[in-house]
Each structure stands twice: as C-alpha cells, then as structure tokens.
Amino acid sequence: MSKVPTPRCIIVRHGQTEWSKSGHYTGKTDLPLTKYGEGQMLRTGKSIFENNRFINPNHITYVFTSPRLRARRTVELVLNPLTEEQRSRFRIIVDEDLAEWDYGDYEGLVTDEIVELRHSRGLDRERPWNIWSDGCENGESTHEIGLRLSRAIARIQNLHKKHWEEGIPSDIMVFAHGHALRYFAALWFQLGEEKACETPEERANPHSYDDDTVPYVQLEKYNYLIKNPNFLLDAGGLGVLSYAHRNLHEPSLELAGTFLCPPEGGVGKHSKVVPSRNDA
C-alpha cells in the first residue's frame, strides 16, 4: 500500500473583521482584519505548523485564496512561520471563484434587516427567507455560487488525483469566507441538487485565476444547495476535507479536522497513512 498520506483540502476562514464580529453580511466590501483577527491568525499559523505540527508544510502543494483583502491577509499571517524554502515548494493562487457570496442588496446588513427589507418588498409571505435556496436580490442565486464553487472543487480534486498518481503528498489549503466555505464543504461530498451544465454561462470558462499549472476542468454537471447544510465555521476557523478509505472517488468530511490520531496496529483499508510529526 502507498505510504503517501491521503490528500486533504484544508479550508480556512479569514480572521475576525469588524463585520464578522457584528454579524453584518460581508461580500465584496474589502474590510481589513481587526487587531484581534491579525493576532488570531498568527497564533493559528504558529499552532498548526510549529507548536503542534498538525500540518506538515512540506506536504502543501497549493494555496488557493479568495481575492478579498481579509482572505489574502489571513494567508500571509497563517503562513508566517514557514521558511522561504518551505514556501518555495507550493504556489499561492488568487481565485475569483472562491469569493464570498455576492449579497447584492443585503451587503452590510444583519439578518433582521434583510428580513425586514424583503418583507417591505412583498417577499417571504409564505415562508421565511432562506439564503441557501432564495439567494440574494441583485446578488447571487444559489445556482450561481454553486456553479463557481463546483468549478473550484473540480480543479482541486483533479490536482489531488494527479499528485496521488505521482506519489506526491498533497495538502491543498483554501482561504475564503463563512458562507462560501460552508457551501464549499457541502459540495465537496456532493450534497444538494445536481444539475447538468446546459447554458453558455454554465459551460463557460470564466478564467477566475491565472496559473498555468492548474488545469481547468470542464464541468458536465454541478451541485447547488437548496437548504442550510448546518455547518459552523467561525472567523479564523479551520476544517479538513479528504477522501474515505483512501479512495479519491469517495470525497468526505474529516470530522477530526487537523487533529489526526495515528491508526493502531498499522494501516487498514479504512485508515489514513499518518506520517510522523518529524517526517520531512
């Protein structure tokens, strides 16, 4: 059996901003991290790479980030403990497909204000507003965000497949936002509704990133959500997505996150290969 660890996708929500703290919907607004948020993500990087070594930096192959300032700053802070030699082993790619949900008319509002606004417009008379199915006025529908996140996932899973076949350990980190990453995690293991790519928009390559080492994957179908996946990911939080039974056809949620326990008595078909914490 291969000694290469099962590939992982490590998702990281950006650190605290004033609006993440107050609950205001933050899509395209380019807010900086708070002072607490800056320290929060520095501590996170030190913990996962130095103090506890939950992530082996030599296993990182790519870092993908949303274009928003708060996400890109979080990348800088979390990767701060790494040496220049370690950073040279992977590429950092800004990907528009990882931007937060476009909230449209709801940008900068809190939930109660959104509900009141929609009621004033004659909406939601029969049931409460649900962003996962109803989307945002003059912003993105659930089909639109589902499509772009499906594209991002297809590229990452394609890279994992390539690295697995080449015998290369591959942890890919994704830095983005609260709604986008919860949606991303649900789509990773194919929750939601499936739709064939039929329209020009669904079949288009929007060139959301600029890096020739990441092949574009033409989707024939994609998934979108119609209800809340009931995942939590606070500002600064981490999650881990991987594959069950060391089978890349079984994308799964790693409930243990980065906190991995080595399997007892060797590696079985249900186990991950967990390298030594001193493994280079």
Rank of each mutant, 00 (worst) to 15 (best):
L238A: 02
V63P: 04
K221P: 01
Y103E: 08
Y216N: 08
D112E: 15
G135Y: 03
G178R: 07
C136G: 03
S133P: 10
Q40H: 02
E166I: 03
R125W: 04
H179R: 11
G108F: 08
G268W: 09
S88F: 04
D171M: 04
V63F: 00
L69F: 06
D171C: 03
T44E: 05
S88W: 07
V12F: 10
R13Q: 05
L77C: 10
A196L: 10
R73Y: 01
D210A: 15
P81G: 12
S47A: 12
G135T: 06
S170V: 02
H119M: 10
P206S: 14
L123W: 11
N52K: 11
N130G: 07
T65Q: 06
K35Q: 07
R246L: 10
L191D: 14
H143P: 06
K272F: 09
L82F: 01
G39Q: 05
D30W: 00
P251N: 05
R72I: 05
L191T: 14
R121I: 03
G257H: 07
T83H: 02
L255N: 13
H59K: 02
S276F: 09
R87A: 06
N138H: 12
L232V: 13
W164R: 15
R72T: 12
I55G: 00
E76T: 13
G167A: 10
A71I: 05
N247W: 07
S47W: 05
S276T: 09
N228M: 10
P81N: 11
G15P: 07
R73I: 08
A71E: 05
H119F: 07
D279V: 13
S271R: 08
P67K: 04
T6M: 04
N51R: 12
R73C: 02
G108W: 10
P262E: 08
G257Q: 10
E100F: 05
I93N: 05
